[in-house]
Amino acid sequence: MIKTNNLKKVYTTDEVETTALNGIDLEISEGEFCAIMGPSGCGKSTLLNILGLLDNPTEGTYQFLDYEVSDKSERERARLRKGNIGFVFQSFNLIDELTVFENVELPLLYLGMPEDERKEKAEAAIDRMNMIHRRNHFPQQLSGGQQQRVAISRAVVANAKLILADEPTGNLDSDHGDEVMKLLAELNDQGTTIVMVTHSPHDAGYAEHTINLFDGQIVQEEVEDGFHV
């Protein structure tokens, strides 16, 4: 599903160049649960953004679903993104002006789905996260765990094949964090590919594939029971 070759990302701000990623070769196949770990600033989010087609790499190639995407325009990437990739963020990133239902419905709107179908799918997704009783609440009226569950509903509502999660438990206490991790694991069981950035070895334990980054490079990769460097 994901295949990168020598990915590089260089940020240039005020004439200072930061190399966030420095030659990433990576392969994640369909149905995998992959965790990306590493110290702060090592480039985890940058990598996730590129994998999620939110950003283009400075150098290197990236095949998503066997399709070369590293040089695609913003519009092209947006088109590929919707319906294929769902996102879950540390800070939930729900739109404050929209209710739970409307937030979850949003990806379907951008897919141009007719209203009845949208309603059915969004409600199913919310129900799946046990949030249906809160469907008309606004994000501020919910706890962090609840907000994250809404965010996961939104990520799955369009039947995304890939879910990218950037420290999904980072803003939650361990009980709620566990709950979120179980939901992700469940989704993975049902066939969704998950790539998750995390600082927590406990959360990484849910994954079968772990990647350790340091200074923009992969320093250690562990798949199932085997190691390789």
């Binding site: 947006a78 088109r79 993104r81 919707k82 990133n93 729900l94 739109i95 002006e97 949003l106 951008y110």
Partner: peptide, 16 residues
């Protein structure tokens, strides 16, 4: 700006 980011992430085009 957050709204913009979220909407774009979910697949909104800039024109939209």
């Amino acid at each position: 700006v957050k709204e913009v980011g979220v909407r774009k992430t979910l697949g909104a085009f800039r024109t939209q």
